[in-house]
Amino acid sequence: MPEPSTRDRILDATAELYRRQGMPATGLKQISQAAQAPFGSIYHHFPGGKEAITVEVIRREGIRYGEFVGAQLADIHPLTGIPHLFENAGRNLQAQDYSEACSIETIALEVASTNEKLRVEAAEVFDSWLSGLATWFAPLGLTDAECRRLATITLTALEGAFVLCRTLRSVEPMVCAGHGVQAAVQAAVGAV
């Protein structure tokens, strides 16, 4: 397998740093060191500096997380398997000592009121995830609006549980969120 390009190393290092410590706490020199790339290569590959890197990180991480969760959803039935999905997310977070969660969430929380360009990028990722989740719920025979509502409940519960798990250093919020989402799905199907 070929070595990752300097550009890819910069993006990978930035994404990891953002997951661990957030965007404001991550400096370009730190990115350069973590990527094992000369400092000048950052501006060579990303003439817009940190904002340009962040746009690319949001896009790449959005695809990466979307594919990761999509692969897990393929093996889970939405009427019964949601707690398992959330428990897996909790175990993964715990295995990383609660240091790495969703970088998109972290960035969105930091920039939603201060950087419109990055807010829009994060919103596009979240919207693509919501669309994917709504499609996953579609075989339950619900309306498009109900599938979108359940997708929103699911993503909101997952992202909120990440925040609580990291803060409390416990998987309990993730487990509770999974059961809560499952109950909402079963109630929606029961109402049809």
Rank of each mutant, 00 (worst) to 15 (best):
I58A: 04
A25W: 14
L164H: 09
T80H: 04
K117E: 15
A25H: 15
A25Q: 14
A134Q: 00
A35H: 03
A184N: 08
E51F: 11
P4G: 04
P78L: 01
A95V: 03
E110W: 00
E110S: 10
Y65N: 13
L93D: 00
A177E: 01
R64N: 02
P139V: 07
E16P: 13
F86N: 00
G48R: 12
R91A: 06
A101F: 08
D97I: 06
L28Y: 11
K29F: 13
A191E: 15
T152N: 11
E172M: 05
H44V: 15
L93K: 08
T80M: 02
A112P: 12
L155F: 08
G48Y: 03
H45P: 09
S103V: 12
N92I: 09
D144E: 14
S5Y: 04
M174H: 08
A35D: 03
A138N: 06
H77I: 04
S170Q: 05
I107G: 01
F126R: 15
P78M: 07
G49C: 03
R148Y: 12
I42L: 11
A145P: 11
I53M: 04
T114W: 08
Y18L: 08
T54Q: 06
Q186R: 10
N88S: 02
P173A: 01
V189H: 07
Q21F: 10
L28H: 12
A177W: 01
P2D: 14
T135K: 06
L168H: 13
A108E: 13
N92A: 12
R64Y: 02
